[in-house]
Design a protein around this nucleic acid. Structure first.
Length: 283
DNA sequence: CACCATGTTCCTTG
DNA sequence: CCAAGGAACATGGT
Protein backbone atom coordinates (compact mmCIF):
# COMPACT_ATOMS: atom_id res chain seq x y z
CA UNK A 1 0.00 0.00 0.00
CA UNK A 2 2.95 2.11 -0.50
CA UNK A 3 3.22 5.70 -1.66
CA UNK A 4 3.38 8.77 0.56
CA UNK A 5 -0.38 9.39 0.80
CA UNK A 6 -1.20 5.82 1.77
CA UNK A 7 1.55 5.78 4.38
CA UNK A 8 0.40 9.15 5.75
CA UNK A 9 -3.18 7.97 6.07
CA UNK A 10 -1.98 4.80 7.75
CA UNK A 11 0.15 6.82 10.19
CA UNK A 12 -2.84 8.97 11.12
CA UNK A 13 -4.88 5.85 11.66
CA UNK A 14 -2.31 4.04 13.78
CA UNK A 15 -1.14 6.96 15.90
CA UNK A 16 -4.08 7.05 18.32
CA UNK A 17 -4.47 3.28 18.20
CA UNK A 18 -0.90 2.58 19.32
CA UNK A 19 -0.16 5.51 21.60
CA UNK A 20 0.79 4.34 25.09
CA UNK A 21 0.56 0.64 24.25
CA UNK A 22 3.19 -1.71 25.67
CA UNK A 23 4.68 -4.63 23.79
CA UNK A 24 4.36 -7.89 25.66
CA UNK A 25 6.10 -10.17 23.21
CA UNK A 26 7.53 -10.22 19.71
CA UNK A 27 6.99 -12.95 17.13
CA UNK A 28 9.18 -12.92 14.04
CA UNK A 29 8.08 -15.16 11.18
CA UNK A 30 10.33 -13.67 8.47
CA UNK A 31 13.67 -12.52 9.84
CA UNK A 32 14.58 -11.09 6.42
CA UNK A 33 12.28 -8.08 6.95
CA UNK A 34 14.33 -7.07 10.01
CA UNK A 35 17.70 -6.88 8.36
CA UNK A 36 20.24 -5.75 9.19
CA UNK A 37 18.72 -6.05 12.68
CA UNK A 38 18.80 -9.56 14.12
CA UNK A 39 15.76 -11.30 15.54
CA UNK A 40 17.45 -11.51 18.92
CA UNK A 41 18.22 -7.82 19.01
CA UNK A 42 14.70 -6.80 17.97
CA UNK A 43 13.11 -8.95 20.65
CA UNK A 44 15.51 -7.71 23.30
CA UNK A 45 14.84 -4.05 22.53
CA UNK A 46 11.12 -4.22 21.78
CA UNK A 47 9.83 -6.48 24.54
CA UNK A 48 8.43 -4.34 27.33
CA UNK A 49 8.81 -1.11 25.34
CA UNK A 50 5.99 1.40 25.02
CA UNK A 51 4.79 3.26 21.88
CA UNK A 52 5.40 6.97 22.33
CA UNK A 53 4.70 8.52 18.94
CA UNK A 54 4.58 7.82 15.24
CA UNK A 55 5.72 9.91 12.31
CA UNK A 56 6.15 9.48 8.59
CA UNK A 57 9.13 10.30 6.38
CA UNK A 58 8.65 9.67 2.66
CA UNK A 59 7.20 6.18 2.51
CA UNK A 60 8.69 5.22 5.87
CA UNK A 61 6.99 5.01 9.25
CA UNK A 62 9.01 5.97 12.31
CA UNK A 63 7.75 4.48 15.56
CA UNK A 64 9.21 6.19 18.63
CA UNK A 65 9.46 3.97 21.68
CA UNK A 66 10.12 4.42 25.35
CA UNK A 67 12.36 1.59 26.39
CA UNK A 68 11.80 -0.42 29.54
CA UNK A 69 15.42 0.42 30.30
CA UNK A 70 15.46 4.11 31.32
CA UNK A 71 17.40 6.35 28.93
CA UNK A 72 17.35 3.80 26.14
CA UNK A 73 14.53 5.14 24.01
CA UNK A 74 14.71 4.18 20.36
CA UNK A 75 13.04 4.35 16.95
CA UNK A 76 11.67 1.49 14.89
CA UNK A 77 11.49 1.98 11.14
CA UNK A 78 8.70 0.50 9.06
CA UNK A 79 8.34 0.27 5.31
CA UNK A 80 5.52 -1.45 3.43
CA UNK A 81 7.40 -2.37 0.28
CA UNK A 82 4.90 -3.25 -2.43
CA UNK A 83 2.37 -5.29 -0.48
CA UNK A 84 2.84 -4.49 3.19
CA UNK A 85 0.07 -3.76 5.67
CA UNK A 86 0.20 -2.81 9.33
CA UNK A 87 -2.80 -3.07 11.58
CA UNK A 88 -4.04 -4.05 15.00
CA UNK A 89 -6.13 -7.22 15.21
CA UNK A 90 -7.90 -9.10 17.96
CA UNK A 91 -5.76 -11.82 19.48
CA UNK A 92 -8.49 -14.32 18.70
CA UNK A 93 -8.25 -13.53 14.96
CA UNK A 94 -6.27 -16.07 12.93
CA UNK A 95 -2.91 -14.62 11.89
CA UNK A 96 -2.70 -13.78 8.17
CA UNK A 97 -0.74 -16.15 5.97
CA UNK A 98 2.09 -13.67 5.39
CA UNK A 99 2.38 -12.12 8.84
CA UNK A 100 6.07 -11.19 8.91
CA UNK A 101 6.13 -9.78 12.44
CA UNK A 102 3.55 -9.81 15.23
CA UNK A 103 3.90 -7.52 18.24
CA UNK A 104 1.70 -8.71 21.07
CA UNK A 105 0.06 -5.89 23.02
CA UNK A 106 -1.89 -6.13 26.27
CA UNK A 107 -5.02 -6.11 24.17
CA UNK A 108 -4.70 -7.18 20.51
CA UNK A 109 -1.75 -7.77 18.22
CA UNK A 110 0.04 -5.22 16.07
CA UNK A 111 0.67 -7.08 12.82
CA UNK A 112 3.05 -6.34 9.97
CA UNK A 113 1.88 -8.45 7.06
CA UNK A 114 3.59 -8.50 3.67
CA UNK A 115 2.94 -11.03 0.92
CA UNK A 116 6.07 -10.27 -1.03
CA UNK A 117 8.25 -9.39 1.96
CA UNK A 118 9.79 -6.40 0.23
CA UNK A 119 9.11 -4.16 3.23
CA UNK A 120 10.98 -3.63 6.49
CA UNK A 121 10.57 -3.49 10.23
CA UNK A 122 13.99 -2.69 11.57
CA UNK A 123 16.08 -0.69 14.01
CA UNK A 124 18.31 0.50 11.15
CA UNK A 125 17.23 4.03 10.23
CA UNK A 126 19.79 4.65 7.50
CA UNK A 127 17.39 4.33 4.54
CA UNK A 128 15.15 7.09 5.84
CA UNK A 129 18.16 9.30 6.48
CA UNK A 130 19.11 9.29 2.81
CA UNK A 131 15.79 10.73 1.68
CA UNK A 132 15.36 14.06 -0.01
CA UNK A 133 12.95 16.70 1.35
CA UNK A 134 9.28 16.11 2.02
CA UNK A 135 7.09 17.65 -0.70
CA UNK A 136 5.93 20.41 1.64
CA UNK A 137 9.31 21.07 3.22
CA UNK A 138 10.61 24.61 2.87
CA UNK A 139 13.72 23.08 1.35
CA UNK A 140 11.71 21.64 -1.51
CA UNK A 141 11.37 24.72 -3.70
CA UNK A 142 11.04 24.97 -7.50
CA UNK A 143 14.56 26.44 -7.53
CA UNK A 144 16.13 23.55 -5.64
CA UNK A 145 14.08 21.05 -7.61
CA UNK A 146 15.23 22.63 -10.90
CA UNK A 147 18.87 22.51 -9.84
CA UNK A 148 18.62 18.82 -9.01
CA UNK A 149 16.85 18.03 -12.27
CA UNK A 150 19.57 19.81 -14.23
CA UNK A 151 22.04 17.12 -13.20
CA UNK A 152 20.23 14.29 -14.93
CA UNK A 153 19.47 13.25 -18.47
CA UNK A 154 17.10 10.52 -17.39
CA UNK A 155 13.44 10.77 -18.39
CA UNK A 156 11.59 12.92 -15.87
CA UNK A 157 9.25 10.07 -14.90
CA UNK A 158 12.20 7.88 -13.93
CA UNK A 159 13.79 10.74 -12.02
CA UNK A 160 10.67 11.34 -9.96
CA UNK A 161 11.05 7.88 -8.47
CA UNK A 162 14.47 8.89 -7.11
CA UNK A 163 13.67 9.44 -3.43
CA UNK A 164 16.65 11.74 -2.94
CA UNK A 165 15.04 14.46 -5.06
CA UNK A 166 11.74 14.58 -3.25
CA UNK A 167 10.56 11.86 -0.88
CA UNK A 168 7.38 9.88 -1.24
CA UNK A 169 6.48 9.89 -4.94
CA UNK A 170 6.00 6.39 -6.32
CA UNK A 171 5.00 4.83 -9.60
CA UNK A 172 1.34 5.83 -9.46
CA UNK A 173 1.69 9.45 -8.41
CA UNK A 174 4.66 10.05 -10.73
CA UNK A 175 2.37 9.47 -13.72
CA UNK A 176 -0.43 11.44 -12.11
CA UNK A 177 1.74 14.46 -11.33
CA UNK A 178 3.17 14.58 -14.85
CA UNK A 179 -0.29 14.42 -16.37
CA UNK A 180 -1.47 17.28 -14.21
CA UNK A 181 1.62 19.32 -15.07
CA UNK A 182 1.15 18.50 -18.78
CA UNK A 183 4.70 17.22 -19.16
CA UNK A 184 5.70 14.16 -21.15
CA UNK A 185 7.16 11.37 -18.99
CA UNK A 186 9.81 10.89 -21.67
CA UNK A 187 11.23 14.39 -21.42
CA UNK A 188 14.80 14.47 -20.14
CA UNK A 189 14.97 15.87 -16.60
CA UNK A 190 17.51 18.52 -17.58
CA UNK A 191 15.37 19.67 -20.51
CA UNK A 192 12.44 20.91 -18.46
CA UNK A 193 11.91 24.66 -18.63
CA UNK A 194 11.66 26.48 -15.33
CA UNK A 195 7.98 27.02 -16.04
CA UNK A 196 7.57 23.27 -16.32
CA UNK A 197 9.55 22.66 -13.15
CA UNK A 198 7.27 25.01 -11.28
CA UNK A 199 4.19 23.31 -12.71
CA UNK A 200 5.54 19.90 -11.75
CA UNK A 201 6.50 21.05 -8.28
CA UNK A 202 2.97 22.29 -7.80
CA UNK A 203 1.41 19.17 -9.30
CA UNK A 204 3.38 16.86 -7.00
CA UNK A 205 2.24 18.72 -3.90
CA UNK A 206 -1.35 18.86 -5.06
CA UNK A 207 -1.66 15.26 -6.21
CA UNK A 208 -0.25 13.96 -2.93
CA UNK A 209 -2.28 16.32 -0.77
CA UNK A 210 -5.49 15.46 -2.59
CA UNK A 211 -4.79 11.76 -2.24
CA UNK A 212 -4.31 12.15 1.52
CA UNK A 213 -7.49 14.18 1.81
CA UNK A 214 -9.40 11.67 -0.30
CA UNK A 215 -8.04 8.70 1.58
CA UNK A 216 -8.91 10.20 4.91
CA UNK A 217 -12.58 10.47 4.02
CA UNK A 218 -12.94 7.01 2.53
CA UNK A 219 -14.11 4.00 4.48
CA UNK A 220 -10.85 2.27 5.19
CA UNK A 221 -9.99 -1.29 5.87
CA UNK A 222 -6.44 -1.60 7.10
CA UNK A 223 -7.01 -5.03 8.49
CA UNK A 224 -6.54 -8.48 7.12
CA UNK A 225 -10.00 -8.66 5.55
CA UNK A 226 -10.64 -9.31 1.91
CA UNK A 227 -9.70 -5.81 0.82
CA UNK A 228 -6.12 -5.10 -0.08
CA UNK A 229 -5.74 -2.22 2.34
CA UNK A 230 -5.06 0.25 -0.42
CA UNK A 231 -7.12 3.19 0.57
CA UNK A 232 -7.72 4.25 -2.97
CA UNK A 233 -9.71 1.09 -3.42
CA UNK A 234 -11.79 2.04 -0.43
CA UNK A 235 -15.37 3.20 -0.79
CA UNK A 236 -17.21 6.02 0.79
CA UNK A 237 -20.72 4.94 1.67
CA UNK A 238 -22.71 4.85 -1.54
CA UNK A 239 -19.89 6.25 -3.65
CA UNK A 240 -18.18 4.79 -6.66
CA UNK A 241 -14.72 3.31 -6.43
CA UNK A 242 -12.42 6.17 -5.44
CA UNK A 243 -9.51 4.66 -7.26
CA UNK A 244 -11.32 5.06 -10.55
CA UNK A 245 -12.35 8.56 -9.73
CA UNK A 246 -9.08 9.90 -8.44
CA UNK A 247 -6.45 8.51 -10.74
CA UNK A 248 -6.59 10.24 -14.08
CA UNK A 249 -4.01 8.21 -16.04
CA UNK A 250 -2.53 5.40 -13.95
CA UNK A 251 -3.73 1.97 -15.12
CA UNK A 252 -6.06 3.61 -17.64
CA UNK A 253 -4.34 2.49 -20.86
CA UNK A 254 -6.77 2.60 -23.75
CA UNK A 255 -9.36 4.58 -21.82
CA UNK A 256 -10.18 8.12 -22.91
CA UNK A 257 -8.22 11.01 -21.45
CA UNK A 258 -10.45 12.99 -19.11
CA UNK A 259 -9.07 16.17 -20.66
CA UNK A 260 -9.01 15.56 -24.42
CA UNK A 261 -10.57 12.15 -25.01
CA UNK A 262 -7.55 10.56 -26.68
CA UNK A 263 -6.74 7.08 -25.40
CA UNK A 264 -4.25 6.93 -22.53
CA UNK A 265 -0.98 5.26 -23.46
CA UNK A 266 1.22 2.91 -21.47
CA UNK A 267 4.97 2.69 -21.85
CA UNK A 268 7.75 1.01 -19.95
CA UNK A 269 10.57 3.05 -18.41
CA UNK A 270 13.23 1.42 -16.24
CA UNK A 271 11.10 -1.73 -16.19
CA UNK A 272 8.08 0.10 -14.74
CA UNK A 273 4.80 1.12 -16.34
CA UNK A 274 4.15 4.75 -17.12
CA UNK A 275 0.74 6.07 -18.18
CA UNK A 276 0.22 9.33 -20.01
CA UNK A 277 -1.83 11.19 -22.60
CA UNK A 278 0.07 11.89 -25.80
CA UNK A 279 -2.35 14.70 -26.58
CA UNK A 280 -1.99 16.59 -23.31
CA UNK A 281 1.65 15.73 -22.55
CA UNK A 282 3.77 16.69 -25.54
CA UNK A 283 7.53 16.29 -25.63
C1' DC B 1 2.94 -20.78 -19.45
C1' DA B 2 3.39 -15.63 -19.93
C1' DC B 3 3.20 -11.25 -18.04
C1' DC B 4 1.90 -7.95 -14.60
C1' DA B 5 2.11 -5.67 -9.78
C1' DT B 6 2.02 0.54 -5.01
C1' DG B 7 9.63 -0.43 -3.97
C1' DT B 8 14.46 -0.44 -2.85
C1' DT B 9 19.16 -2.10 -3.14
C1' DC B 10 23.05 -4.07 -5.13
C1' DC B 11 26.13 -4.83 -8.92
C1' DT B 12 27.94 -3.58 -13.35
C1' DT B 13 29.20 -0.68 -17.00
C1' DG B 14 30.56 3.51 -19.06
C1' DC C 1 33.49 9.76 -7.94
C1' DC C 2 29.10 9.66 -10.62
C1' DA C 3 25.14 8.51 -13.63
C1' DA C 4 22.49 4.96 -15.52
C1' DG C 5 20.73 0.30 -16.51
C1' DG C 6 19.43 -4.14 -15.07
C1' DA C 7 18.77 -7.94 -11.97
C1' DA C 8 17.32 -9.46 -7.61
C1' DC C 9 14.18 -9.94 -3.84
C1' DA C 10 9.05 -13.18 -3.37
C1' DT C 11 4.29 -14.03 -4.06
C1' DG C 12 0.01 -13.84 -6.24
C1' DG C 13 -3.41 -12.32 -9.86
C1' DT C 14 -5.05 -12.49 -14.59
Amino acid sequence: MPELPEVEVLARHLRPVLRGKTIRSVQVNRPKVLQPTSERELKRVLTGAKFKSLSRRGKYLLFEFRSKTPGKNFTLLGHLGMTGKMFVAEKSAPPPKHAAVVLELNRGNFIYEDTRYFGRMTLDLSSAEKLGPEPWDKNFTPEVFARELQRSRQPIKVKLLDQSLVAGVGNIYASEALFRAKISPKRAANKLTFTQVKALHCAICKVLAEAIAGGSTVQLNFGGGKTDGLFYFGRAPGAENYYEERLLVYDRAGKPCVQCGKPIKRLVQSARSTFFCSGCQKL
